[in-house]
């Protein structure tokens, strides 16, 4: 492979979009109102679109005869590099929103840096993504406020979701070897640098939504090294079903 670090690095970014897009896609037709179904699908479509751009680029970087779909569908679970946060299930709408917001804030900070990457393709994808993700964050942030400061029931549910998902936030800033290599080459984003802004921004919004900021010393990691939560296997069973059942066919 021409540049294994870069290839891995692209996959790390893309898998977050792929897996979150997949989770949102599961919801289509099952949300609390037609309007939210349409909004959720839009976000999912943005994420799948980003995924395709990244994977098409990764396929080129690989120097092999790979397609975007080979990369998306034909890896083993241990080879998916998304963070644990995005694979968490649609337990209820509060979880959907909390997962989205906790990721969106990171995602936007991340793309804002990635646009200055020395790698022109990544920079271009980031620039396009910034507009999309700004909207995602606006959508999820507004909903955090509505649910947090809505009814007693919604407040409890929203708090529950934030508390449960909080432990996956620190992983967002974990640096893999590929991350480090890419930062040193001026291509990748130095994640720990984003951490303070992230928690400041999230905390401010949670407070506005009358929610408590979880106090937690212990966090969960592993996604970036391919060690996922138990939910991931089922997500992949769905995602990969066709490609695994009918190998080597065009669709």
């Amino acid at each position: 492979m021409a540049n294994q670090n870069l290839y891995n690095y692209i996959l790390g970014i893309a898998d977050n979009s792929l897996v979150l897009g997949q989770r949102l896609g599961e919801l289509c037709g099952h949300g609390p109102s037609l309007e939210t179904d349409i909004a959720g699908t839009n976000i999912s479509l943005d994420l799948i679109g980003q995924t395709r751009s990244y994977f098409q680029y990764a396929a080129k970087v690989s120097g092999k005869e790979l397609t975007e779909d080979d990369i998306a569908f034909l890896r083993l679970e241990r080879d998916y590099r998304n963070v644990l946060l995005v694979e968490q299930p649609n337990t209820h709408f509060g979880y959907v929103i909390a997962r989205q917001y906790l990721f969106d804030v990171f995602h936007l900070l991340f793309l804002n840096e990635l646009q200055y990457s020395k790698d022109e393709t990544l920079s271009a994808i980031a620039k396009k993504g910034i507009k999309e993700v700004s909207y995602h964050k606006r959508f999820s942030g507004d909903w955090i406020k509505r649910l947090g400061d809505g009814t007693e029931e919604s407040h409890e549910k929203m708090q529950e979701a934030v508390d449960d998902l909080w432990r996956y936030t620190d992983e967002l800033f974990e640096m893999s070897e590929d991350d480090q290599q890419m930062v040193s080459e001026g291509i990748g984003v130095d994640l720990p640098k984003l951490k303070e802004s992230y928690y400041d921004e999230v905390s401010e919004l949670l407070s506005e939504a009358t929610l408590e900021i979880p106090e937690r010393k212990y966090f969960s990691y592993g996604g970036k090294n391919g060690v996922h939560t138990e939910h991931m296997g089922y997500l992949l069973a769905d995602l990969q079903y066709m490609q695994r059942t009918y190998p080597n066919m065009q669709w």
Binding site: Q22, G25, E26, C28, G29, L34, D37, I38, T41, N42, S44, L45, I48, G49, T51, R52, F55, E68, D69, A72, F73, D238, L239, Y241, M242, Q243, Y246, W251
Partner: peptide, 23 residues
């Protein structure tokens, strides 16, 4: 079939179609 669409292109098209139906 959204979660099981066989390619990313098909997944996006199907999502967009089902979304249109909501619209």
């Amino acid at each position: 079939w959204i979660s099981r669409a066989p390619s990313l292109r098909r997944k996006a098209a199907l999502l967009a179609k089902v979304q249109d139906e909501a619209g």
